[in-house]
């Protein structure tokens, strides 16, 4: 049996604020663990610990503003956070910017790559737009001729 990474819930909670998508839905993609593993392969433990600790220390109220100022605006953590957003939306890891790599380290696994075929299909970009991943999870014959369902807004529960 696999032992669950204790950081998983923190990672998904942070991802939820970054992507604007509920944690339930993020877990529902089936990719949460794979993305955390990917981060672990690419980035040093200390960097990830800093990211998660920073997030855990933020006040629960006004969490979006706090993440913006404390995480996204941070020169070291901000680019990583943006990459986490892209990973969820596209299923792709994007190489960190050159100036970031010059300042904080050029890690060998930090190269553009698709996480997996499953991650491509699970990319949030499709579902959020009311669509489906091109080539998978079809919506059924003639569904395209119907009024699009209201793309789901973030529910506040």
């Amino acid at each position: 049996m696999r032992i669950q990474d204790p950081r998983l819930h923190t990672f998904v909670a942070l991802s939820s604020v970054l992507t604007g998508v509920e944690t339930v839905q993020l877990f529902g993609t089936g990719q949460a663990e794979a993305y955390l593993v990917t981060l672990g392969k690419i980035l040093p433990v200390a960097l990830l610990d800093d990211l998660f600790k920073r997030f855990e220390a933020l006040p629960a109220e006004e969490i979006e503003a706090a993440v913006e100022h404390q995480v996204l605006d941070d020169t070291r953590l901000g680019c990583v956070a943006q990459n986490i957003i892209l990973m969820w939306y596209r299923g792709v890891w994007r190489r960190l910017p050159d100036d970031w790599r010059a300042s904080f380290g050029a890690f060998p696994e930090d190269e553009n790559h698709l996480i997996s075929g499953a991650a491509y299909q699970a990319g949030l970009q499709w579902e959020i737009a009311g669509a489906h991943p091109i080539g998978a999870r079809h919506q059924g014959y003639a569904s395209w001729s119907l009024v699009p369902t209201k793309p789901n807004r973030r529910n506040t529960a």
Binding site: V67, I85, Y89, Q125, I128, A129, P151
Partner: peptide
């Protein structure tokens, strides 16, 4: 963009 804003912007842009 990030969070709810990003999400709304994607809907607006793609669909």
């Amino acid at each position: 963009k990030f969070g709810a804003d990003l999400r709304q912007a994607i809907i607006d842009r793609v669909s």
